[in-house]
């Protein structure tokens, strides 16, 4: 049977090969960058004073752990339902082929008052994240203390004050599609979208 009509169909295998090589090189560079960033983070978190800020601006006393710090927490469900879901970055210390395939998880930073314990817990979590990214993480912070450190490495942090995990989960599920919230301190699951 004549092959005439088919000889122009389809793709060029040489082009496919070139694209595949370029993709692999890009991947290699991204992985190296992630390693570099992780090394910087590890160095920082190895110091107990990582969260210390030598800041002297106090004009008055205020509650560092507010009752509620997310205005959206009091927004009615219908208004929230009318808003599109937003993406969550992977963080610069990790690389994976398709970060969008990773689910979004909330980590509640509830290690209060003890910076050494906090940095140790974060280091442990983020080492795992660097080695084998398991989720796109949203850090849910009771206070703003860890924000300036985590933010440097492209992690998303929200200040949640004293809000309960269920309220936090409902909002973050709407905003980011979060599926679960775990405690940084114990690793325990505090909230799940399936519950």
């Amino acid at each position: 049977m004549a092959a005439g009509p088919n000889d122009l169909a389809g793709v060029d295998p040489d082009a496919l090969r070139v694209l595949r090589r370029a993709g692999l090189e890009r991947q290699d560079l991204a992985q190296r960058l992630a390693r570099f960033e992780f090394q910087s983070l590890r160095r920082e978190l190895s110091s107990a004073s990582v969260f210390d800020l030598q800041v002297d601006v106090a004009t008055r006393k205020a509650d560092p752990v507010p009752e509620q710090a997310e205005p959206e927490m009091s927004m009615p469900a219908e208004l929230l339902a009318g808003l599109p879901q937003l993406p969550v970055p992977l963080g610069r210390i990790a690389w994976t082929k398709r970060p969008e395939d990773l689910q979004v998880a909330g980590i509640l930073i509830d290690v209060a008052g003890d910076d050494a314990a906090l940095s140790s817990a974060l280091l442990s979590l983020l080492t795992e994240h660097h080695r084998n990214p398991f989720a796109r993480i949203v850090f849910l912070c009771r206070t703003l203390d860890p924000v300036h450190v985590l933010g440097r490495y492209g992690f998303l942090c929200h200040q949640v004050g004293r809000a309960d995990p269920a309220s936090i989960g409902a909002l973050m599920q709407r905003r980011y599609g979060i599926q679960q919230i775990r405690s940084l301190d114990s690793g325990r699951k505090l909230w799940s979208a399936l519950d």
């Binding site: 088919n6 169909a9 389809g10 793709v11």
Partner: peptide, 9 residues
Amino acid sequence: TKLASTVRA
């Protein structure tokens, strides 16, 4: 479909 038609070729 595009790959399939290449294979058919």
